[in-house]
Design a protein around this nucleic acid. Structure first.
Lengths: 225, 225, 225, 225
DNA sequence: CATGAATGAGCGTTCATTCAT
DNA sequence: TATGAATGAACGCTCATTCAT
């Protein structure tokens, strides 16, 4: 989260001055510029590889100005990480007790793929953070993720109870779905090699969605009639 | 790959000295020490975050010595990455045309999980490299991966032809299996949160293997008889 | 010395506005706040170590405001140094031709000690400035000090002429008195160690005054009767 | 004190290599160069004002090399301060129970003046350190100073017991002597003004010694016969 | 050969100062 | 007028790399 600029408010208390709103806006805008640039740079270079000048340049602000809003590189990094959590469980809303499993899971897979593809930098940054040990992920964020996962696992258990799906460890199943959907963005280079294409296109994502969904829902084995 | 030490005896005209063999051995041993240490350090810190002194310390060699065998940090990094390829497709041997799909895939999943778990540092380092864009992965390595994937996709296509499994895009299926199996090591922190445990244990890996295998082979949906 | 604020109403042609007096007062008050805070900060940190924000905070004014009254850190420093001169020779008034030497010198020593103790920050700041080479001390200030010293040396010479005291180099004697009296404040840490106390108290200052006075007036040696 | 260069000795244990002695010498020489330069720079600019580049330049070594021997500016500063202690009490050896007070004190005053004059940079640096609160002076150093002062105070008490000098608080007397003798170096600018000279010369130091000694030993007052 | 010593390019960060309102 | 916002020059320090023996 962005620091308060280090100025002191000693003389305040005379009410909000007339330009406060615009000041607030300016700050918010600049913080956003910095964070947006930072996500891009961090996702490509990581925390250590990222250069503060590069973030500054990408944000269109002078280097010193970055330090007016943030007090260290790590703080910027933490701020970018924290923002990721807000979108992490977005696709999860499709896993809802009142929907049919087949339709819900398909929607989830598609939403997850789309989200990853549409937020590639954030997705890679998050992956990188977890890969390095998740040391900059706040406890609140992790707790939130734990809670949401448990809740959605409950939905799957409900479906199994209603004999709509087979008994399965819901948490491992979610891991299966996460990993498969995020892979195309996180490990795009590998996916391209595996699919023998130069770049992933919409058709590739569609086929990915179809393959994941079909496989997970129906399995691979041919059944005797 | 290690550089040739910068001085050699070619111009001395005395041919190979009598201690050449032991010299060779010493060099090989030291290079191995360095690379082993490097994998560990790179996997935890990444290319930029890794410090050459740390690699030296972990290898038990003086810092200057490291530069005797390698001429830059990037060269060490490249050498570690290249070595990973050799073990990348090991588990793939289970995907063999003469085996039954169910048994082969289960064996593959188990082997992949075991390999990732037993080579955590390498696995994370490889993931990190791909995540950052695979810019240090040699073309030969990528070509090798492409070829092996294509070959194994052929095996699946054969199974489908023989109506042992349903028609499926084999490459996307492999991505599904890779991602799911590697996830537990690469994103261990996230897996722990999802499973609500402090640390992954053998039981967790077993259940992971079972869930992946069952789901992929049989699907989730309950079938009408 | 404080700059004139950079904008003024001279060109407005409306003469002195009705609130000029209060404006003057506000400025004087703010300048004083700044200088008081500056003495404190400079005395503890020195010119280079002092931070303008710290002075601003200590003065209760916003940082930008400090630059409204002064145009640089050095200017603030110079202003604080110049103010010290006004109190430098205060105790000297006791060295007066119409007093008895013993009583005058005792009064001087006590006044000097008290002044140093009561103006510790200023005393240390002045010492620091001299120690660093007195490069920020104005020529007028140094000239003033020179003149006053010469004048008071004349008083001592008069006493010697009148055979009230022995012949002595008055200027070196003053140095002896200055240094001894200021030491307790400037080098308090050392004085504490020497006296084996944690903090100097009134009793310590009293004994200092007595020791200095007695020694200087009567000497150490036991005389044959 | 200088750090061990940060190299690791992992492979040592094969005995001291033949160039170890010269290496030791090189290190000692460079450390000395740095410390000598540092005393000069710190004494003129203080800890905060001193620039590491300036110390490097003054020592004739490249900037990076300074950090090969010391790990921070503060460490260099501490090392310079620590060295001062060794010479701090040198002149004190004249205060010896078996000497006559008059002669001993005169010798002490002269030695102290000479030492300060001959080690001007160190003297000012030490003064500056105490003035700023002695926060970088080690406890051992302060303890040493305390002990030596107490011991020498004992000598004066002995003289008083033997009725060779009058009863006096020895510690305050030492403060009187320290402050007076060091003043000429620490506050040279002020001394020059007081004495109305451009620069202090030997004659000035001689007169200082005479004035201090005579005054302290015999006092100022003319005695009735 | 092997390795401790040396170095300089470059980074994160600070902070006096200026700007804009 | 007064002040929060902005900035860039410079500093301490790190570390990959080279040197010298």
């Amino acid at each position: 989260m962005a620091e308060e600029p280090k100025t002191n408010n000693v003389t305040s208390g005379r009410g909000v001055p007339s330009h406060a709103v615009s000041d607030e806006r300016i700050r918010a805008r600049n913080v956003l510029k910095i964070l947006t640039a930072a996500v891009e740079v961090f996702s490509r270079k990581g925390l250590d590889g990222a250069r503060i000048v590069e973030i500054a340049k990408a944000s269109g602000l002078p280097k010193g100005n970055v330090y007016y809003y943030f007090s260290s590189k790590e703080e910027i990094y933490n701020a970018t990480i924290d923002r990721l959590i807000h979108s992490w469980d977005e696709a999860f809303r499709h896993i809802s007790a009142d929907r049919e499993p087949a339709e819900a899971i398909e929607a989830y897979v598609r939403a997850k793929l789309e989200h990853a593809r549409g937020n590639a930098a954030e997705t890679r940054l998050f992956a990188n953070e977890i890969l390095q040990g998740a040391e900059h992920l706040s406890l609140e964020a992790r707790e939130h993720m734990r809670r949401v996962t448990a809740e959605k696992a409950g939905v799957l258990d409900g479906w199994a109870e209603a004999r709509k799906i087979v008994r399965v460890d819901a948490r491992h199943l979610f891991i299966l779905l996460w990993s498969a959907t995020q892979f195309y963005v996180e490990f795009e280079a590998l996916a391209c090699d595996a699919l023998d294409v130069r770049q992933l296109r919409t058709a590739d994502y569609d086929l990915a969605a179809k393959t994941i969904t079909n496989t997970v829902l129906n399995g691979l084995l041919v059944r005797p009639e």
